[in-house]
Amino acid sequence: MIPAKANQNLQTTKSGRKIRVKNAAIGWSFVIIATVMICLFYFYPMVQALILSFQSGTGTNLTFTGIDNYARLFKDPTFITTVKNTVIYLVIQVPVMILLALFLSVLLNNKTLKLKGVFRTAIFLPCVTSLVAYSVIFKYLFGQDGIINIMLMKVSFISEPIQWLTDPFWAKIAIIIAITWRWTGYNMIFYLSALQNVDESIYEAAKIDGASSFQQFFKITIPMLKPIILFTSITSTIGTLQLFDEVMNITKGGPGNSTMTISQYIYNLSFKYTPDFGYAATVSYAIVIMIIIFSIIQFKVAGDKNE
């Protein structure tokens, strides 16, 4: 299980085949624990959920219905609404958040900056703050006579209070603001940790060549951080396609399903309504398929060939 002896004979090519087998064995032993655990606690239940997705009925009264559930997806107006909502969140929110997080992390990575620790902690705090507190305060901030409306009206930006949480359009905006607020600091952490691995001397060289900050950012920082940017965009995509907490706690999907996400629909099908775990599993697999498509696109765009 634990890789025992070194492959110090890596360079010595006495009997190449033997060494390769041995190297392979060491490599595999590094990944074996993780593989076993994931198979046990993810793939086994996933297979069960897949079987479940071909069944329908309430509670324990499930019967096999073939692909009926999958056909139902396309006729289910609630499902279609939730897909639309989720894609809107994804397309608008993920790019904004990633750029914002990158930008903040570059600012914070400045050696001469003072109070770095305070800034870092402050910007990270939203994702530590309990969801309960966060939902109460957001509902308050975005309320009819909440601070945001008061401020916007004071500067004469608007003449009437915006119905942030009770109007279908503004409620979506409020949710996008809420997710961005909560997760920007989180993504920033990954960039900050990655920036430590970027060789300072590259920047020094660029400065000597007269590169502006902008050029440095786009020509050095972004390409250097590509593996982590790819990582955060894929995980953010997954997070947004599975978005649940914010919506559940701030708008409960309302008004009239206008902010409901696919994950919340799964929750409703399993727990709020008379449970139909079969159809809920089908909707879950619809998410899986969407995520796979988006991830493949992102891998392709990033040109990460695992070379």
Binding site: Y42, M46, A49, F244, A280, A281, V288, I292, S295
Partner: peptide, 13 residues
């Protein structure tokens, strides 16, 4: 792939 399924779907199994 294991990241891609919502946890709610795995809970019952």
């Amino acid at each position: 792939l294991s990241m891609m399924i919502p946890f709610a779907a795995l809970m019952v199994p």
